[in-house]
Amino acid sequence: MTLEYPGTLALILGGSCELALHLARAMIGDALRPILTYRNEAGRDRIVRGLEGLSGRYESRRLDLADRTTLEALLDSWGEDPLDFTVDFAHGDYEELVAAADDDVLERYFRENVSSRACFLRRAARIMLRRRKGRMVFVSSGAAENPNPGQGFYAASKLASEALYRSVGLELGRRGVTTVILRPGYVRAGRGRAYLEREGKQVSRKIPTGKALEGEEVARTILFLLSTHARNLNATVVTMDGGLSSGK
C-alpha cells in the first residue's frame, strides 16, 4: 500500500537513536523531510553516519530536554514553516530499584523526561494549532505497562508522557491536531539489541509470534501512524509486541 501523508515536515526527537535513523531513512524514501534532533556532538555524528549519502534530504538540530534554552531556540522562533509531524523517541535511561534510587537523580529524571516533554508539547501544539493541522507520535514502550524490576522510573515517566500526549489529542483533536502513542515490545535495535543478544531465545519463546521486532518494522508502523490512513487513531495507544502483553 502506498501511504499518503497530510504534510512533509517532521520533527524527530531523539533523532540519533537507531530507531529514529530507521524512521528517517524510511521518511526520506517516502519524500518526507525529517528534522532530527540530537543532544550532543556524538549524537550529531551518529546522525551523519547513519544517514550517509542522504545529505540535503534531512536536517539536524540540537535539542536537549534537560536544557530549556535548546527547546526555546528550536521552537520559540519556528517562524512560518508548518510543523506537520512530530515523532518523539527522546527518553533518558535510568534503571534502578525504586527503593534504591537517589532523590536528586530521580527528581532530575522526571524533570527531564516528563516536565520538559510537557514544555515541548506546549510549544509544538501551539505551532500546529496555528494551521489547525498536525500529527504527533509518541514512541513509548511495552515496559510502560509491564516493567521489569529496575524499570520503575522509566515506566512511570513513559506512562506520564503517554498521558500528556493523550490529552493533547483529546483537547486539540477537534482543531486538527491529533496524537497517537506506539508501544513497541522487544526491538532488535538500540538498547534492546544487547538485551536480545543475551536473552533472545528466552524472549522469543514468550512472544506469540515467536520473534522480537526489527527496527525497520517499527519505522514502517510509525509511517503508517503518520499517514492519512491512520488519522482516526487519536489519543490512544497502539501496542506492537507480537501479542506479548496479551497473555500470561
Binding site: 501551539r126 494549532l129 496555528r130 483537547e171 477537534r174 482543531r175
Partner: peptide, 12 residues
C-alpha cells in the same frame, strides 16, 4: 480552547 487559539493567533 478558543482562548488558546486566540493566544496563538495573537502571538503570530
Amino acid at each position: 480552547i478558543d482562548l488558546l487559539e486566540i493566544a496563538v493567533a495573537m502571538s503570530y
